[in-house]
């Protein structure tokens, strides 16, 4: 690449080996914990569901930060803003559907 300054900013904006390895290890841990919880239940069924959903969300956040580098977008963080909008829509659809259909008994 002809442009040195730009090249540098590219390199740092896509993380280091360290951050990928940390993200990978954390993801593995957050996959194994729910597995163990489901195979030998420590909590009640509702408790287990809440626990494994929390693990899934945590793993999503970890991938977002360590793999997808959500923090390192430039200027106004359009990517974060669209993501937040998307998540609001997804949560509305999922929670709304479950809520409405809960009255369908």
């Amino acid at each position: 690449m002809a442009n040195h300054t730009n090249h540098n900013s590219h390199a740092e904006s896509h993380g280091s080996l360290k951050s990928y390895v940390i993200g990978f290890i954390l993801s593995i841990v957050l996959t194994i914990i729910p597995l163990v919880l489901v195979m030998n239940p420590l909590f009640s069924k509702a408790g287990t569901i809440i626990a494994i959903m929390i693990m899934a969300v945590l793993q999503f956040v970890i991938q977002l930060f360590f793999f997808m580098h959500i923090r390192e977008g430039e200027k106004p963080r359009w990517n974060v803003q669209t993501l937040v909008l998307g998540l609001v829509i997804v949560l509305t659809i999922v929670a709304g559907s479950i809520w409405i259909m809960a009255f369908n008994v």
């Binding site: 998540l87 997804v90 659809i93 999922v94 709304g96 559907s97 479950i98």
Partner: peptide, 10 residues
């Protein structure tokens, strides 16, 4: 994401 959200809701 919204597509998958709808399928998850279903």
């Amino acid at each position: 994401c919204i597509l998958f959200g709808s399928l998850f809701a279903t």
